[in-house]
Amino acid sequence: MIVGVTGGIGSGKTTVVKLFSNYTNVAIYIADAEAKKLINLSAKIKQQIIDLFGEKAYKNNILDRKYIGQLVFNNKEKLQSLNNIVHPAVKEHFANFVKSNQHKDYILYESAILFESNSSEKFNFIISVYVDLSERIQRVMARDSVDKKEVLARIKNQWKEDKKLLLSNYLIINSSLENTKNQVRKIHNILTEKATHFL
């Protein structure tokens, strides 16, 4: 059974996934982290990105995320071209991850752009993590040392929250850690129970 976890930038998906990782019957796949590894380790992907953005795309063999970010966040075509390189590689990598974790009750796949990348159909259930927009902006500004304008530019590339929530099976309101822990425990128990019907 495969469960998607998503939410807008700064909603606290990482915190939620860490709480799920306390349960031993769950395998967790962080799409963004795996994409970063593939981008820096795969010679094929590196070459495709250099062909698209030039030699400046990498600094000391590591993707220059700030440079790429400036190029793609206000240019939908370039962002789409980058996604066309990275998404198929992540998809293949995840398929192998699923095969090697079939003994788990369910697999959590965390991605900020789960709906935007048209991959929501492959999940049995979807969990959305939600926090008020003003709090998300403050979190991202503090976390990434960027200004409000840059945070809003990133948010603009993601679906509106209400649209995501309507298409999700479960909602976690990530306002306080204790409250979030309780919501994660409840959803985990439901999913563990549901997993028995997928065998």
Results as ranks from 00 to 15, higher is better:
I68D: 03
I68K: 08
I68S: 09
G69A: 12
G69M: 10
Q70W: 13
Q70H: 14
Q70T: 12
Q70I: 15
L71P: 01
L71A: 10
L71D: 00
L71K: 11
V72Y: 07
V72W: 05
V72H: 09
N74K: 13
N75F: 00
N75V: 02
K76G: 03
E77W: 04
E77A: 01
K78Q: 09
K78A: 12
K78V: 03
K78P: 00
K78G: 02
L79E: 11
L79R: 10
Q80H: 14
Q80Y: 13
Q80I: 12
Q80W: 08
Q80F: 14
S81L: 15
L82N: 03
L82W: 01
N83S: 07
N83M: 01
N83R: 01
N83T: 01
N83W: 04
N84P: 06
N84Y: 13
N84S: 15
N84T: 04
I85Y: 13
I85Q: 14
I85W: 11
V86H: 03
V86L: 05
V86N: 07
V86A: 02
V86M: 06
H87N: 10
H87T: 06
P88D: 11
P88T: 14
P88G: 13
A89Y: 00
A89C: 08
A89D: 02
A89E: 07
V90L: 07
V90C: 07
V90P: 05
K91Q: 11
K91I: 11
E92I: 15
E92L: 15
E92D: 09
H93G: 10
H93I: 04
H93Y: 03
F94W: 03
A95I: 06
A95C: 09
N96G: 14
N96K: 15
F97L: 11
V98Q: 07
V98E: 05
K99V: 11
S100Q: 12
S100C: 11
N101F: 10
N101Y: 09
N101R: 05
N101S: 05
Q102W: 06
Q102V: 13
Q102D: 09
H103S: 14
K104C: 04
K104H: 12
K104S: 04
K104R: 12
Y106F: 15
Y106S: 03
Y106M: 08
I107A: 02
L108P: 09
L108Y: 03
Y109C: 15
Y109D: 06
E110Q: 09
E110K: 08
S111T: 10
S111F: 12
A112W: 02
I113W: 00
I113K: 06
I113C: 13
I113S: 11
L114R: 06
L114S: 07
F115R: 08
F115K: 08
F115G: 11
F115N: 07
F115W: 09
E116L: 05
